[in-house]
Design a protein around this nucleic acid. Sequence first.
DNA 1: AATGAATGAGTTTTCATTCAT
DNA 2: CATGAATGAAAACTCATTCAT
Lengths: 213, 213, 213, 213
Amino acid sequence: MVVTGTTRRVDKHRAILDAALDVFARQGYADTNLDEVAEVAGVAKPTIYNHFGDKAGLFAAVVETSSQDANARVADVIAATSTNPEDLRAELETLARSLVHCLQGGAGSATMRLQLVEGARFPELISRVRDGNRDRTLDLLAGKLAQLAATGHLRLRDPGRAARQLMALVSDEPLVNSGFGARPVDPAVVDRAVTEGVDTFLAAFAPEPAPES
Amino acid sequence: MVVTGTTRRVDKHRAILDAALDVFARQGYADTNLDEVAEVAGVAKPTIYNHFGDKAGLFAAVVETSSQDANARVADVIAATSTNPEDLRAELETLARSLVHCLQGGAGSATMRLQLVEGARFPELISRVRDGNRDRTLDLLAGKLAQLAATGHLRLRDPGRAARQLMALVSDEPLVNSGFGARPVDPAVVDRAVTEGVDTFLAAFAPEPAPES
Amino acid sequence: MVVTGTTRRVDKHRAILDAALDVFARQGYADTNLDEVAEVAGVAKPTIYNHFGDKAGLFAAVVETSSQDANARVADVIAATSTNPEDLRAELETLARSLVHCLQGGAGSATMRLQLVEGARFPELISRVRDGNRDRTLDLLAGKLAQLAATGHLRLRDPGRAARQLMALVSDEPLVNSGFGARPVDPAVVDRAVTEGVDTFLAAFAPEPAPES
Amino acid sequence: MVVTGTTRRVDKHRAILDAALDVFARQGYADTNLDEVAEVAGVAKPTIYNHFGDKAGLFAAVVETSSQDANARVADVIAATSTNPEDLRAELETLARSLVHCLQGGAGSATMRLQLVEGARFPELISRVRDGNRDRTLDLLAGKLAQLAATGHLRLRDPGRAARQLMALVSDEPLVNSGFGARPVDPAVVDRAVTEGVDTFLAAFAPEPAPES
DNA sequence: AATGAATGAGTTTTCATTCAT
DNA sequence: CATGAATGAAAACTCATTCAT
């Protein structure tokens, strides 16, 4: 009994966040009206105000929450990568594919689109969230690559640079192909970007001369 | 003098387009009100409607025009690249820097931001313009790289892939750093991306083992 | 007190309808701006949109409501007419005067003017409402006249025709005189139309040769 | 050569009037925009201002002109009626049918609709034109009926009343059926109204007891 | 805490009218 | 005189936000 009230409240809180992420990502901040969010969430409009203060507060909460989720998934993916793999190429391809999927698939796409589209409207919020997430991701990735270098699987002097370039090689093309999150990505484009990206990465950073393109 | 009637109209047309590019890029489509565009352009609001029909028509005209401009600049830059350079690394760095500048600097940044932010609102328009431009750019770049391969400066089997990866290596980081066009790019980031990007590109595609990273 | 919430809403609904009938009838649909309706009704403009969707929806509601009112009054008037009167002429004059009053006086005039002026703008709505009402009125009137014929007070073979012609005789002149609802009717014109209309009606349909004109 | 300028001007004047009658009648004053009138007339918008001053002036000119035309046609019809006909019923039916046609057919309908719909907007103009026309028509008709009484074809003491009632009997139903000019009239309705209207008129005003209805 | 209802402020669009040629 | 272009004023409609229950 006692927790029911709390549970309900938490449920509504979460329902509003989910609905808002969906609607904001599809229509952008300015074109989102809270009536629609309220309807999708199944609550009355004033309830949104009770929970989040105003429209900007709701948006901030959505961005923070969804970014944390995405970041956690990315960290998991990187952590799951072996530092001493049998097949380096396969290991990197798996890693890259997972990263691209975190950033472009499902909620990841919505999260990214939000950050991207509303960067000019909420500069501090978005800068903080995005740069923070990106920095953490690149740090983790650089760490992993440094370990691979330590174990002799890679030959690199600047793990940060290698991390940035690996990300660029495998994620740039899918990003553009998705219309920067506006459309679903073509899986074939992801495949090609991952395969060719890792290939070039290895050509540049593998200890032995890798096969040419 | 004699053509003043025509001149005046053309002037206003151009003034509206310039003002609209500025305001749209800064505030996004939904947050732009035509009162502000009219004021910046120095015309009355109905004049905008006379020239462009409605807000969406104005936006479309802005995107088309500014994209054509950007595309022309990019084509010039690529065309100006030597296919038999003394110093390949320097030549590629110059090319890359110019490309990044076309895409991220000044009007280029505004153009890109428009396309990127409003992709979901005007899918056909943006797809047509952006994909068209990107494809043309990559074709031109691939052609240039193929020539460099033919003259023995590069070793590559798939010029299209090389073009996409060169673009990714040098432009991804500045793009992110600019908040996808929301902030001015840090020139140091551009420098680093260009230098390191070309370096890795050469490591992967130069005939002789390129210098390590 | 307990039902204040409901009451308030109903009050505003009614207030808007009343105000709108007034303003629409005076100025016509196109010249009516909802700011004025809102002011007359004592509500904010969006409240009108909350209740009626848009301007056309408000108009439709006004027409439906006011027509139902008018129709009910007309039905009452006809029902109140005796089928076995002592003085047939007096009875018919009373009936006719009441009918004309229903159609031309006060809210009746506004209702009629609306239907008449906006017939081209809302063809289905107006056709439905007006033809329906007119048909029902003529049916009721024809029924009453048929009863008067059955009791020997009138001599007629086609009660529908008699009803139409009675209406024409007593209402045409006041209608024109009011500028089709634009001005208040001159009571003297109503008097004359009723007296002379009933007189001619009786000359044509009374069993015994009625007094000459 | 010399008259060409004048001729052209007259042509344009007339073309504007014709176009304006058409558009005003279809859409009403408030919903008519002069761009459309200009396009239909094949002239530039300022030309309308040169000829008629402003929108209201154009409307007044249209009403005056078209009313004069309609009035002239009505006068012709009444004048063409014999005062000593072989078949009185047939003669009256012909007269009535022609009158209804003048008022409801083609330009007559447009003229009437204008007067009716815009009565509240231009009270003096419309009152003057309509009442004037109606009075003249009723005077002419009353004169004709008085002559028929003088020749023993009718038995009436008040020719004005007889004229008003004849008009009411034959024109009321078609008027309503046309939606007061908004739709084309059903010819069957005209036929019935004329036949039955004249029948009742004769029942009331013929010297010998006319056949009952 | 949650909600139905109400509202103030703002935006797109239209159109009668006027310049300048 | 006729016209292409420009404009000031207004009106429909929307939406974030707040009351009152």
